[in-house]
Amino acid sequence: MNRIHTLFNTKKERVLSIYFTAGFPNLEDTVPIMEAIEAGGADIIEIGVPYSDPVADGPTIQDSNQIALQNGMSMNKLFEQLVGFRAKVHLPVVLMGYLNPIMQYGMDAFCKKCKEVGVDGLILPDLPMQEYLDEYKALFESYGLVNTFLISPQTSEKRIREIDGNTDGFIYMVSSHSITGAKSGISEEQINYFERVREMNLKNPRLIGFGISNSETFTTASNYSNGAIIGSAFIKVLKNSKNLKEDVQGYIRSVIN
């Protein structure tokens, strides 16, 4: 069974997913950071595949992408690093990446590699739902990969239902109309949106992302969903860290406790 399904079968509250950019801060940090995320007590690991033009991301993640590319990160390099990681890391792992680098690698080859190394799911922000259904759904499924869609406060109820019908992992709720890392804190308007979606009784679990940074925002988000995703705030921890293992674990504990 896919690890994402196993997770949500047993844990329905305060699920914490942590995003980081592969190859940041240093090229070889990828697997050590994954181990530290697991040791710290998070539930899902999201690995960002760096891209030169990440249009859905704010300055913090943009910078980490650029540094990772300068460090020499590439799709080949990432898959090389991921060979054998399942001996050390047991959490569900999701790759998040923009479509172009994946297309150049080849969608088939990419999915095959994901399965080989032990990746469970994908988040491809610029892959539209219709394109996914027409071109890639069968392929993803044949490699046991769960595809995650984003929704935002602007997404219509009809479309949320369609998205819910076309995935069986989790739904990524973008917390406000924003790129990553843009806003901090959670407003009344956002709460209304969280409640509105909660009341739709979707079949998929929901994780709230964008603007989640600490225990307080994690708890608020978790009150309205199954948990949350932290990206930019975690990248900042990595950026300022002198001891990755300690700082990653310390940060994650500070969020979940």
Binding site: M75, N76, L99, N100, M103, Q104
Partner: peptide
């Protein structure tokens, strides 16, 4: 250039083998 995706459409763009623009 080679085929790829830039600024929301599939087109021809100048990129590395790895798909970086």
């Amino acid at each position: 250039g080679t085929p790829g995706i830039l600024h929301g459409s599939k087109t021809i763009l100048m990129q590395t083998e790895d798909g970086q623009v």
